[in-house]
Amino acid sequence: MTTLVAMPEQTKVRRLNALRSALRARFFAVFLILVAVFVYFAVTQEQFLTVSNMNSMLTSTSTLWMAAIGMTFVMLVGAFDLSLGALVGINGVVLGLMFNTFGLPIEVAVLLTIAGGFVIGVVANGILIGQFGLSFLIVTLGTSWLLSGLVSLFTDSKTEPLISPWLDTLAFGRVAGIPVPVVVMIGVFAASWVVLNRTLFGRDIYSIGGNPQAARLSGINVRRTVAVVFGVAGLMAALSAIMQVSRIAAVSPQVNSEIMFQAAAAVLLGGASFVGGGGTITGTAVGVLFLGVMSNGLGLVGAPSYWQHVITGSIVLIAGVLDFLQGTGAGPIRKIMQMVTFRRTRPRVGERSPIDVD
């Protein structure tokens, strides 16, 4: 008599396909909500669809756009970056030092800030997490406090003006009638999409997020890849800082810790998974646009800003619950329901019984 045994590889493939389908479903759900919210504000608020308001809404999301893309890379490998706000703050300080203190040309200062952002991300977070295997929560929390302190130290807790025509053009200029920040956002989006979908590095990121052990056995240098991912997050934080400084024409001594939560919310709204391996740059873009439309529309309505937090937080919580049910939480809940209702489901060929103990 032949006994059929479950095939682990086939089971993993089925679960991975199911997870991808679920994440796509969540992405489209948020996209439909975005469309509905957009239409609602367009109908109820006369100023919403004006060109000036659309430009203002898009350019105001440029800072979050960059930060959220960086957070996407981190969450795809199954990690999280609590130091994102501090990274944005310290990169703004670096830009100020390069331009105001050392007198470098603004173009050189911007390039050095971007390169410095990558280095800070790798050294402060990537090496400790990727090479030494420390907890990303502990490392990024410590880095957040460290960098926040350095921001206050270098700025003396005072706002430092940073005046540059080049930065003014970056913040308020236009290319073929399109605001420069929007052009930069599109360029960063396209480059990130290519990296994740058309390069070996992007493939490695998804592999590590899906199964780090399997990725290591397949020959992927997991430690180096994770270190570089945090470097990418630092680089994107530098771009976010540059957009922020260009808009306010100053280096702020305040660390915007809220941008970390907004970036995480955008990534989760876009369909990313808490455990890594699932998520897309397109989904993150939809999440950022959702937050931007919500903030702009509620501002036109005159609603207090905390309502955006309430609505966005509720949606993120729902997304988290769905992610849990679609992932590891679905199995135990299904078993409990079957035990409570005394249902006995006959397993399919090659599968274990759903009430078997692992």
Rank of each mutant, 00 (worst) to 15 (best):
Y206Q: 06
M75Y: 09
L128C: 11
A22Y: 10
W166V: 06
V77L: 09
R198S: 12
K12Y: 10
G142A: 11
R346C: 00
V88L: 15
A265G: 14
S83E: 06
G297V: 03
G231P: 04
S144L: 11
H309C: 00
F230N: 02
L134T: 07
T140Y: 07
D168A: 15
S21K: 15
N256I: 00
G210Y: 08
K335A: 14
V182Q: 10
G219I: 00
S60E: 07
A176C: 07
Q262C: 01
V349W: 14
G89Q: 09
D204T: 01
A176M: 13
S218P: 01
K158N: 12
A303D: 01
V232M: 13
R26E: 05
S135E: 05
P161A: 13
T61I: 01
K12S: 12
S21N: 12
I106G: 06
S257C: 00
N53M: 08
S252K: 11
A285S: 10
L111N: 08
A79S: 15
G287C: 05
I315K: 15
V13E: 13
V301W: 10
S56Q: 14
M339G: 12
W307N: 01
F230L: 02
G149P: 08
V310C: 09
A227S: 15
A241Q: 08
P179T: 02
W145G: 05
D81F: 04
I248K: 12
T101V: 07
R216C: 00
A250Y: 06
V228C: 05
A303P: 04
N100M: 04
F41N: 03
G219L: 08
F80C: 03
V267R: 12
L147M: 15
L322S: 10
A6R: 15
F28Q: 06
N296W: 08
S60C: 01
G327Y: 05
T199S: 14
T113R: 13
V122H: 06
V37A: 15
G297D: 02
S314C: 11
A115F: 09
L58H: 06
L64D: 02
A285T: 04
V5E: 10
T3D: 02
A36H: 08
G276S: 04
L111Q: 07
L317G: 05
L196E: 02
T280I: 00
A176I: 04
L268W: 05
A79R: 15
Q45E: 13
A265V: 00
G313C: 10
F28L: 14
A115Q: 02
A36Y: 08
F342P: 00
N100V: 03
T312N: 12
G209L: 09
R198W: 12
V122G: 04
